[in-house]
Amino acid sequence: MRINNVGLNLGQTTNNPFKTSRNSTTNPFQNVSFEGNTLPYADVFVGGIESHKANKLKMIASSVMGSMTKLTSAFEPIVNFVNRVREGISNAWTYATNKNLFNLPGEEACKKVMSTDIVDIGKGIAHSASDLGKVLDKDALEVGKEISSKISSKMELFGNGISEAWSSMINSVKISRAPHASKEMPVEDLKAMWIELNAAAEREAA
């Protein structure tokens, strides 16, 4: 069965409780008794036709007043309904305002987070950041030391290589520009030249 069909049937079969009987052909005061509810001084109007009309109006007025008192019982269910709705709304509001909305899974975590002062949260974040910074700083320091030592050793080797290459080049220049060995040269100078040549030969061989 489809919902649209259900709605259509309900609309057709449900009576509107607020629908007036103004257009109805039935008399709402049909079964109401007017005894004991007549207006006082209703019979002050005297006369032939006029008294007859006055009596008729008196009867209508009396019936209206009487029906008002009698109809309180007829309106009672509606009043109760309104009261119930109003009470229900009030209860719902009270429930909503007094109900702990965090009675859910993870309530404690939510309570903890929501009840923590924003300053404390800031301190916690700062503390965590500080710890992280310390770890990173320490690691970075160690990494820096390691890199520095490696670079230093490499540069030392590189420097030694440069130094050796430089001295070799200088000696080569010295040897190439050195005067030809002759007997006029001191023996010590000839010896020094020979030693230098031997060292250059060893470097080239290495």
């Binding site: 030809h180 060995a181 001191p186």
Partner: peptide, 20 residues
């Protein structure tokens, strides 16, 4: 260069050339 040094030491008058 070494040959030149040896030749120079061979004719050198200083006796220390022999030690070298």
């Amino acid at each position: 260069k070494i040959a030149e040094i040896i030749d120079a030491l061979a004719v050198h008058e200083d006796n220390s050339s022999i030690q070298v």
